Structure formats: C-alpha cells, structure tokens
Amino acid sequence: MTTFKEFWPFYLQEHSNPLNRRLHFVGTFFVHVVLLYALFTQQWMMLWLLPVIGYGFAWVGHFIVEKNRPATFKHPLWSLRGDFKMFYAMCAGKLWK
C-alpha cells in the first residue's frame, strides 16, 4: 500500500466486526471530549489521556473482539486517519453494521 486510498479498504476489513467499530467510536468520541475540555479549561495535563483513551478502546476491540492486531502497528498515521474517517462516517450514520 502506498496511499491512504489503498489503505482504507484494508482498514475497514480489519474493523469488520460492528462491536469493534463501536468501541473505536466510543474511544474517538471521548478523545474529542477530553481534547475540547483541555482546550477550553487550559488543563494541558489532560492531553496525556488522549492516546490512553483512544488506543484503550481500540485495542480492546482488536485483541478481544476482532482478534487481530491493530493496523496502528504497521501504519500508525494512516490508522489514525482511518479512525477519524470511520468516526465521522459513523456520525453521518454509516458503517454501524
């Protein structure tokens, strides 16, 4: 894979279980909440929670639900982009099944 466009179908395949997608959604939702809270309150120490929350929910989804390795291990930036693309697609009512 040399482009995100090529990576995206692989990403979706690695997130084929709806419960895994939902766990990613919850984690990414709380990443947004904590980020906004830190920005508005200027409590910058809260920012250390972002990877803990984001990866925590995602890794439960992969290791326990999907039983595969997170794409983050081989493609960290594309995987992060994929997480947000999937989150916003789910906000639009897509990818829930």
Results as ranks from 00 to 15, higher is better:
2 T>R: 13
3 T>Y: 11
3 T>D: 14
4 F>A: 03
4 F>K: 07
4 F>Y: 15
4 F>D: 10
5 K>D: 15
5 K>Y: 06
5 K>A: 15
5 K>M: 06
6 E>P: 06
6 E>Y: 03
7 F>Q: 11
8 W>Y: 14
8 W>H: 03
8 W>D: 03
8 W>C: 04
9 P>V: 01
9 P>Y: 05
9 P>G: 10
9 P>R: 09
10 F>R: 15
10 F>M: 13
11 Y>F: 15
11 Y>R: 04
12 L>R: 14
12 L>A: 07
13 Q>H: 12
15 H>M: 06
15 H>F: 07
17 N>T: 12
17 N>I: 11
17 N>W: 09
18 P>Y: 11
18 P>I: 04
19 L>N: 03
20 N>V: 00
21 R>S: 08
21 R>G: 04
21 R>M: 07
21 R>P: 08
22 R>S: 11
24 H>A: 05
24 H>F: 01
24 H>M: 06
25 F>R: 10
25 F>A: 09
27 G>Y: 02
27 G>K: 03
27 G>E: 00
29 F>V: 03
30 F>L: 15
30 F>V: 05
31 V>G: 08
31 V>N: 05
32 H>N: 08
32 H>T: 05
32 H>L: 14
33 V>N: 05
33 V>G: 07
33 V>I: 14
34 V>A: 10
34 V>L: 13
34 V>I: 15
35 L>T: 14
36 L>N: 09
37 Y>Q: 09
37 Y>R: 06
38 A>L: 02
39 L>F: 13
40 F>W: 12
41 T>N: 12
42 Q>I: 03
43 Q>L: 09
44 W>D: 05
44 W>L: 13
46 M>N: 02
46 M>Q: 07
47 L>M: 14
48 W>E: 01
50 L>N: 01
50 L>P: 02
51 P>M: 10
51 P>V: 09
51 P>E: 06
54 G>N: 07
54 G>C: 06
55 Y>D: 00
55 Y>L: 13
56 G>T: 08
57 F>K: 08
57 F>N: 05
58 A>L: 05
58 A>V: 09
59 W>S: 06
59 W>A: 04
60 V>L: 14
60 V>D: 02
62 H>D: 03
62 H>K: 09
63 F>R: 13
63 F>G: 00
64 I>G: 00
64 I>C: 04
64 I>Y: 11
65 V>L: 09
66 E>H: 12
66 E>G: 04
66 E>K: 12
67 K>A: 04
68 N>W: 01
69 R>G: 01
69 R>I: 14
70 P>F: 06
71 A>D: 04
72 T>Q: 01
72 T>H: 03
74 K>N: 13
74 K>H: 08
75 H>F: 12
76 P>K: 10
78 W>I: 00
79 S>G: 09
80 L>N: 03
81 R>G: 04
82 G>A: 12
82 G>V: 02
82 G>P: 06
83 D>Q: 12
83 D>M: 08
83 D>I: 07
84 F>Q: 10
85 K>N: 09
85 K>C: 07
85 K>R: 13
86 M>G: 06
87 F>D: 09
87 F>G: 08
88 Y>W: 15
88 Y>N: 11
89 A>S: 13
90 M>Y: 08
91 C>D: 00
91 C>H: 01
92 A>G: 12
92 A>W: 04
93 G>R: 11
93 G>Q: 05
94 K>M: 02
94 K>Y: 02
94 K>P: 01
94 K>T: 00
94 K>L: 08
95 L>I: 03
96 W>L: 09
96 W>P: 03
96 W>N: 01
